[in-house]
């Protein structure tokens, strides 16, 4: 039995499905592919797969991953790619299969590209608004969780960022805390900006890469 990490992109129509839907879609594809993946036991056996860090509905993901257990240690990784892609909807494409080097719990940061625009307003304005927000000492925002609402300061979660003015949008590259304990969703940042300016932005968000606490790319 070998722990294997399957890397994929999630975009197009599949960008609009939730993590739960992604999970079901993946299990179905694994089942259809008949790859030698370990299945759960019991009344209703199904392929066993876990996701180191779920992706929010609406985000594009260019470096997403899913962990499975391979029953055949010598099974070629290349074949996993072709067989799975044949069983997946167009919006999910597997591009790489590796051994799981780091434990899933090691994820500590994630990098995002956030393209922000205000219909009918110059992108330079949005850039300035973003820079002003990120220059604040505290960025407070109400966060909804299972336990209710609470106000959190997301500024400490911002590890690094840069703002670039594009033709009709502002491009924010940002690295935020991620993982099971201290996860900050870039949607919160957009909400904080909206709270501050009173405007409604159009946001197109891509998650690029995951990192461990030492800022080494997650492998």
């Amino acid at each position: 039995m070998k722990n294997v990490r399957i890397w994929f992109k999630k975009d197009d129509a599949c960008r609009y499905i939730s993590h739960l839907d992604l999970n079901r879609t993946m299990l179905r594809a694994l089942h259809k592919s008949k790859l030698p993946i370990w299945h759960t036991e019991g009344f209703n056996p199904h392929p066993f797969a876990t996701f180191p860090l779920p992706l929010s509905l609406g985000f594009r993901g260019v470096n997403e991953c899913m962990d499975v257990k391979l029953e055949d240690d010598d099974f070629p990784f290349e074949e996993i790619i072709t067989r799975l892609n044949a069983c997946l909807p167009r919006g999910i494409r597997v591009f790489k299969v590796t051994e799981a080097v780091m434990k899933a719990g090691k994820v500590a940061y994630a990098s995002f590209t956030v393209c922000l625009s205000l219909p009918g307003k110059p992108s330079g304005l949005v850039c300035r608004q973003l820079e002003e927000l990120l220059a604040c000492e505290h960025i407070e925002i109400e966060k909804k969780s299972k336990k209710g609402r609470k106000t959190v300061d997301i500024k400490p979660a911002v590890r690094d960022f840069s703002v670039t003015e594009r033709f009709d949008f502002a491009e924010l590259a940002i690295i935020l805390s991620a993982g099971s304990s201290d996860n900050v969703n870039p949607n919160l940042l957009v909400a904080a900006l909206e709270q501050r300016t009173g405007e409604t932005y159009e946001a197109d968000i891509t998650r690029n890469e995951l990192y461990n606490a030492e800022m080494e790319p997650f492998r």
Binding site: D12, A13, C14, Y16, I17, S18, D21, T25, A29, L57, G58, C87, L88, P89, R90, G91
Partner: peptide, 10 residues
Amino acid sequence: KPGRYVGGEL
């Protein structure tokens, strides 16, 4: 549930 308005299924 925007996933129902986009097609793109297998």
